[in-house]
Amino acid sequence: MDQTFLRVSGEEALPEHLRGGVVAIGNFDGIHRGHQAVLERALEEARRRKVPALVLTFDPHPRKVFQPDVPLFVLTPPAVKAELIEALGFAAVVERPFTREFAALSADDFVTSILDERLGISHAVTGFDFHFGKNRQGGPAFLMAAGERHGFGVTLVDAFRDEGAEIVSSSRIRALLAEGEAAEAAGLLGYRYTVEAEVVGGAKLGRTLGFPTANMRLSAEAGLKEGIYAVRFRRADGTLHDGVASFGRRPTVDDNGAPLLETFVFDFTGDLYGEIARVSFFGYLRGEVKFEGLDPLVAQMKRDEAEARALLSSVRPLSELDRAFAF
């Protein structure tokens, strides 16, 4: 059997060797510890049945379709989500385009055309509150009854609660990141929050100050608190470097600059332009400050570097997923 992880468009035919698998169904924005409880249950069921384990997810996020004028901070764009799913051990992710036409499918049509005919599943695993189909008419009881008719099993996974007995959710994580609480968000994610983007050219001011940066433009909807962070930077070739990053509008040198993630990569010289790189956030150091000139700015940047190096020297992986992404 081909063991290569696949990203399959929801409108493509599923490769034959993946049919008959166990599928975890959900949007899974963040792949946080609650999602991981669902995904691990699917992996266990697939191992028990000796069949492939798949994830069926949707893009864009349904809220972006139904409320397009309301900004939504998406924690894991499709490429990052797929990498997390692969790292967990799945054979494939099926990325179903979410459109108003797709949302208008009846719950019965969703089961028949997607789960049965297109994917040919043997078992479905979802969260206890999963709803689907036009007007969310399909719920857990409907899915279990449909499974009996179509010949597949269904497992429902209860809400996952953290050590404080609170339900882990994507909205909680978005709120923490908006406050700069990177470490607390990592506790709910089970790994350090990570972004991926192309390294682009900048004004090169950092280079003249002795702090050359790798600049990455994130989504305009990124809800990360502006400020300075201790980070790890992973290059396209997989090599990993500690660093310190500024996310914001560079108030000292450019009052009107677009938000940008600028990472000073420690112990690295070379050209990163054009690379698709990842940055993992370990700790929030301080907010942005407008300095009276470049000398005070450079002095603070040296303090930021020292603080980031100290913080990163003592970190340990939170999980195997964290190890795969940030260690």
Rank of each mutant, 00 (worst) to 15 (best):
L6V: 04
R7N: 14
V8D: 11
S9L: 15
H17F: 07
V22F: 08
F28N: 08
G30Y: 01
G34W: 02
E40M: 03
R41A: 15
L43W: 11
E45L: 12
R47H: 09
R49N: 06
V51K: 08
V51A: 02
V51E: 06
V51M: 08
R63N: 10
V65E: 02
F66R: 10
P68T: 08
P68A: 09
D69C: 00
V70I: 08
P71L: 10
L72A: 09
L75N: 10
P78K: 01
P78M: 05
A79M: 04
K81S: 03
E83W: 01
A91Q: 10
A92Q: 08
T99S: 14
A103T: 10
A104H: 11
V111Y: 11
I114Q: 13
I114K: 03
R118V: 05
H123Q: 13
A124E: 07
T126A: 15
T126F: 07
G133T: 08
G133L: 11
K134P: 01
N135F: 04
A141C: 03
A146R: 14
A146D: 09
E148H: 08
G151W: 07
G164W: 03
E166F: 01
V168H: 08
S169P: 09
S171A: 15
L176Y: 06
L177K: 12
L177M: 12
E179R: 15
E181G: 12
A186V: 02
G187Q: 14
G187L: 15
T194W: 02
V199L: 11
V200D: 03
G202Q: 10
G206I: 14
G210K: 13
P212V: 10
T213F: 03
A214L: 11
A220I: 04
L224E: 05
E226F: 05
Y229F: 10
V231C: 10
L240H: 00
D242G: 08
V244Y: 01
A245K: 01
S246P: 00
R250G: 00
P251D: 01
T252W: 04
D255G: 05
A258M: 02
A258I: 04
P259N: 05
P259R: 14
P259W: 02
L261R: 04
L261T: 02
F264I: 00
T269N: 05
G270M: 00
G274Q: 09
R278E: 14
V279G: 07
V279F: 07
V279H: 11
E288S: 13
K290W: 04
K290Q: 15
V298Y: 03
A299T: 15
R303W: 01
R303L: 12
E305P: 03
E305I: 00
A306K: 12
L312Q: 10
S313T: 06
V315A: 11
V315G: 03
D322N: 06
D322Y: 05
D322W: 05
